[in-house]
Design a protein around this nucleic acid. Structure first.
Lengths: 157, 157
DNA sequence: CACAACAATTGCAAGCATACATTTATGGCG
DNA sequence: CGCCATAAATGTATGCTTGCAATTGTTGTG
């Protein structure tokens, strides 16, 4: 009989290896984008994609940078055409940041490419194997619990 | 009967979700390090960890930066104590870069933390579930093929 | 040995992120 | 209405990365 620790260790190692494979997929999907925008800039775009338009304060809080840092970062990506500043009539001292269609495209495209890459990898497997992977991945994701967006933003996901 | 495309789509989605969970783990393990060294600097350390001591030229080629960029980057992480410059007696125009014990620790610690985080997640599962995950992850990693270090370096893995 | 090829570094310059302090505009409250 | 709090932007400064061009030191070759 196999001792529990050994079994657990093998499980963790397998997950680590799979994580390398998955990260490779992610890295490739991000690589293209990083030739267009910087990682901190991409983080902003991803956050706006998942959360919709946000105030400067909220946005800065979410990605963990000071207001002054964010203000200048927004300057640059507004200049580049990925986002837009909107002053809300209700409270004219608050500034809403929202994705432009171009910015939306940029994020959507990166996510779609990642999904396609994964589909490519799975395409060589038999239906049985695929279904085993689906169950296992769903199981793992559930065990991991809600992955906080904050963590993922570090990598610009 | 379920059409193939639907099934494939669900598989890719499950993999995507699992990838978010795994990347959360990776992100957390990287987050701590990024308060100590920058991402490009961490890339250098990770590469030296997996490849051993490297010449400036090879190192620059591997992480895709110009020699001048690398030279100054090395200046800084030498100054910080993570790596060491070694002039090889055999060819005095070549400079070998190698991790110091401190640099080695930094990388090792980040990887260990990632592995521990994964083990934590798996700890709530039953042996059967764990074994299903192990098989599925091993299967996926094999299907993904060799993940090039070059890709992974983008994210500093 | 002289000269070309190579390895690494340095000079010079730009862009980006970041931080702290200050300023401007606006909103809320007594 | 006047004052204070709030939201964002600016002034100022530092450090990292990146790029192109020029330089220094070293190796190998004719």
């Amino acid at each position: 009989m196999i001792p529990d620790e050994d079994f657990d260790a093998r499980a963790a190692d397998a997950a680590l290896t799979a994580s390398r494979a998955l990260m490779g997929v992610v890295a490739r999907s991000v690589a293209g984008v990083l030739e267009i925008v910087t990682l901190p800039q991409f983080r902003v775009l991803v956050l706006l994609d998942t959360s919709g338009p946000l105030r400067m304060g909220v946005l800065g809080e979410a990605i963990g940078v000071l207001p002054s840092t964010l203000s200048r970062a927004i300057d640059r990506i507004v200049e580049a055409g990925w986002v837009r500043r909107t002053t809300r009539p209700a409270s004219r001292r608050e500034v809403l940041i929202e994705l432009t269609p171009a910015g939306q495209n940029l994020v959507t495209h990166a996510l779609e490419q990642r999904r396609d890459n994964i589909a490519d990898i799975l395409s060589v497997l038999s239906p049985d194997q695929k279904s085993a992977i689906v169950s296992a991945f769903e199981l793992f994701a559930r065990a991991a619990g809600e992955t906080s967006s904050k963590d993922l933003l570090i990598l610009g996901i």
